[in-house]
Design a binder for these strands. Structure first.
Length: 363
DNA sequence: AAGGCGGGGCA
DNA sequence: TGCCCAGCCTT
């Protein structure tokens, strides 16, 4: 009852892979595949849906057709093309990775698992995915999709966040893996999780392995996987300054570590909830050391949810009497023409402000 | 082992 | 508005 027999494993593999070959999505990295396309797509699809990553994959393949092109690029160029996709450490690690592959692995992806793990941005999942999909090496992948599929197949109802549960799932993934077609099998597992065995309302009627699914048999599909509740996000409030002087606008670079590292933005002052509600009644000079020459223009309030922060923010357009501003939180900033603002890697919260600014200019 | 790190989408 | 999705890295 607790174990799949060799016959059942073989049947599972056959049914799954047959389903995959008939139902897989047409995706650009699946056309004329090579390891570089696999690598690029796997990095981009970490914590990211296919729909969201698709336009970025096309951009990167167009701009950097080979790993050498990627390695030879500037980091700011990579961040610019990546801006809006999030988790920007991926982009910076990708640049480091490309240089390492170029210099230490003769511009070829290493075939060894430990070597793959030594590359920045490549962990257990990505190493197994690239080695199996691009080189048909026998490594089982465990990503979010696979975790969900396996927890249902084996009716594992323990908290899926626990590392002990992940360990158990990894063992099951190795057990099910088809050693003859590891790449195909891994892709099929992930595609099943993405198309059929979805987090909400899984399409069990069209599942190729529903007869082997213990969650289905026990009518527990909606209870598995169990995930313990997430912590509440911290609420934060930002006042964003559109500082203007001589028809130029100030844009600043965030520090190289932490949230949105290395991305550009309009200078920000973090306020508490009370300050955020009342700043308009105060004098910007007294409160922020900013000397404005006239009335300010306020943007609508925006909300932006990060994985651990619930941010509310609002921009004010402020004309300065001189260009001396106290921006001690930033080590680099520039005064730019309006059009030049669009040439910098700006994170999404401030892209919304830029869009608002654009609507003022054109409207 | 736990927490930091984006952005999109849904009820 | 609250809350879901989730690999890699650092601590």
């Amino acid at each position: 009852m607790n174990k799949f027999s060799p016959g059942q494993i073989s049947e599972f593999q056959t049914r799954l892979v047959d389903w995959f070959q008939k139902n897989k999505r047409k995706l650009p990295w699946r056309e004329k595949p090579n390891w570089y396309k696999t690598y690029l797509s796997e990095i981009m699809l970490q914590q990211t849906t296919v729909e969201q990553g698709l336009p970025y994959f096309k951009k990167f393949i167009d701009n950097f057709p080979t790993i050498i092109d990627l390695a030879n690029s500037e980091e700011q160029r990579i961040l610019y093309l990546w801006s809006g996709l999030g988790y920007y450490a991926r982009a910076r690690n990708m640049h480091k990775a490309a240089k390492k592959i170029r210099d230490e692995f003769a511009a070829e992806f290493p075939r060894d698992y430990k070597d793959a793990l030594s590359i920045p941005g490549i962990g257990p999942y990505t190493a197994a995915a690239i080695l199996s999909i691009a080189f048909n090496k026998t490594h089982a992948v465990v990503d979010g999709n696979v975790s969900r599929v396996i927890s249902r197949i084996f009716a594992i109802s323990k908290d899926i966040r626990l590392s002990s549960t992940q360990k158990q799932i990894t063992e099951k993934a190795k057990l099910l893996l088809d050693p003859e077609n590891p790449g195909l099998f891994n892709e099929a597992m992930m595609e099943l999780g993405a198309l059929i065995c979805t987090p909400l309302k899984p399409d069990c009627n069209n599942c190729p392995v529903n007869l082997q699914c213990r969650a289905q048999a026990k009518n527990l599909v909606n209870e598995i996987p169990y995930k313990s509740p997430a912590k509440a996000k911290k609420k934060k409030f930002n006042l964003v300054f559109i500082l203007r002087f001589n028809n130029k606008i100030c844009l600043a670079k965030r520090p190289d570590t932490g949230l949105l590292a290395g991305m550009w933005e309009f200078p920000v002052k973090e306020l508490n909830a009370k300050q955020f509600e009342s700043f308009g009644e105060n004098n910007l000079d007294q409160n922020f050391g900013i000397i404005n020459t006239g009335p300010t223009v306020q943007s609508p309030k925006y909300r932006h949810q990060y994985s651990h922060i619930d941010l509310t923010y609002q921009a004010v357009i402020t004309d300065l009497r001189d260009s001396v501003v106290q921006l001690s939180d930033y080590y680099e900033y520039k005064w730019l023409n309006f059009a030049e603002l669009f040439d910098y890697p700006i994170h999404n919260a401030h892209k919304k402000i830029l869009e608002w600014l654009k609507s003022l200019v054109s409207g």
